[in-house]
Computed example of a mutant assay.
Amino acid sequence: MASRSYKSNNTVQCSASTKRHSEESLERPSKKSRTSPSSPSDSCSLKAVTEESTASLKRKSTADETEEGPRKRSRVTPIPAEDHRETPCGSCPNEDAQPSSNLEDHDVPLISPLAKAIKAAFDEKYVEQELLGKGGFGAVFAGYRRQDNVPVAIKHIHLSSVEIIKVPGDLGDRKLPLEVALLLQAKPPESGPSAVVGLLNWYVVGQELILVLERPVPCMELGDYFRTRQFPMPEHEVKVIGKQLVDALIEIHSRGVFHRDIKMENILIETGSDVPRVRIIDFGCGTFVTEEAYTSGPGTPLYKSPEWIINRRYKAEPATVWQLGFLLYTMVHGHYPFNYPQKKVFGNLYVRQNLSNNCLRFLQSCFLTAPEDRATLEALKDHPWLV
């Protein structure tokens, strides 16, 4: 997908391509902020739905089964067709999505009256506007909620690329898309500010999963924000973002969620106030936090930690700390710390001479090769560079 907010799914952010060599400065093209008009577009476009039965869903190997290996699937249970009759769409606490009885004709083929009802429920509630980004598994559009003109991001994903898990509940197990389950768990139960861009609603229309997400306005991706600033960014500005990122990652991990793909494209910066605010998006490569090591490798190869390169195993917190260090290093230097995997293990880390000692030590604590020696998120929170 192009460098836009709300990436469509794992294919772009989990791609195996390395973007640039570390010695090259990052380019600074002019890009637009993700503000959007509040007027409706001429039409609401949904992808065509196929005749394929949902009972035969199998996750394909494009995103999760990268060259690093397939994702562990102990929780995966395909959604049988009858579940779509019982639960036509998902409803989050602050929304009340129900299928509409309006079965008007649409400009896309629909496989059943139920699919028409769900499509009508979506159209009744939301207006879809311009494309924000596109990837191999789907696309993300700007939009707004009809009731109050609240901006939203609308993410379309083909069900063939969606992992389904069983989530225990008071009324028994419930089958949910993994990304939906992660977003629901990452959001705090009580209303209030959160670093996670929240899920407002979700729908299954035929063979497509539709996620309706918050869309902060005005905002831009961290990479775009980075290119609008002094190049490379002054240390004191990076520190403001770094402190918020550490707090955000502690928040997410404390709720048992492992994002697994922390990078500039998956971080938004709200720019409507004097102090930029960090928001985390796109849990398409995510999973749940466990004490055991992970042996599959979704995520962006350039950001992978050395323990994955050496042993094809990694744990949640050390891998997250490595990605955080990679991100902050890039911001204070204007280039990536490593340009090929072997340097993560055997190479020396170049640092600017004019960095403060505290900043240097912070970065070094993120880049220790042995994961058990790497700083924890809590230790980083109390590090002198951020205090």
Rank of each mutant, 00 (worst) to 15 (best):
D148C: 01
R145K: 15
P188D: 14
V150S: 00
L182S: 08
E128F: 12
V127H: 15
G169I: 04
L132K: 14
A142D: 15
A117T: 00
E179G: 02
D224P: 01
H156S: 07
G169Q: 03
Y126L: 05
T228Q: 12
I210F: 02
K187V: 12
L132G: 11
L222T: 05
L184T: 14
H236W: 06
P234V: 06
E221L: 01
D224G: 10
K155H: 06
E214C: 09
E124L: 09
A195M: 08
D170F: 11
N149M: 12
K119Q: 07
V127A: 14
E237A: 07
L171E: 04
Q207C: 14
P232Y: 08
L159S: 00
T228A: 09
G198R: 03
A121T: 00
V196H: 08
L132S: 12
Y144R: 12
K175M: 13
L213A: 07
D105V: 02
A142F: 14
G143A: 07
M233F: 07
A181W: 12
L131S: 10
M233T: 08
I165N: 02
A115G: 11
I111R: 15
V217N: 00
H156K: 05
H106E: 07
P234Q: 09
L222Q: 06
D107R: 12
A117G: 01
V196M: 11
T228Y: 10
F141Y: 15
K125T: 05
D224C: 03
A153P: 04
H106Y: 10
E163K: 02
L131N: 10
V167Y: 12
E179S: 12
V217C: 05
S160V: 14
I165S: 03
G133D: 12
L176N: 06
A181K: 08
E235Y: 04
L183Y: 11
A153S: 03
V162Q: 04
F122M: 08
P109Y: 11
L131I: 14
A142M: 12
V108R: 09
D173E: 03
F226N: 08
A139F: 01
E190Y: 05
P177F: 00
K187T: 15
F226C: 00
E237W: 03
K187L: 11
P151Y: 08
R229S: 05
L159N: 10
L209G: 14
Q207V: 15
L209Y: 13
F231Q: 15
L182T: 09
P168N: 04
S112Q: 11
E179Q: 14
W202P: 00
A181F: 13
L114V: 00
E214H: 08
W202G: 08
A186L: 13
L182D: 01
H156Q: 07
P168M: 08
V196G: 03
V180L: 00
P113A: 10
I210S: 02
G198V: 06
E214N: 14
L132Y: 15
G223F: 03
L114C: 09
V162T: 15
I111H: 15
W202R: 05
H156D: 01
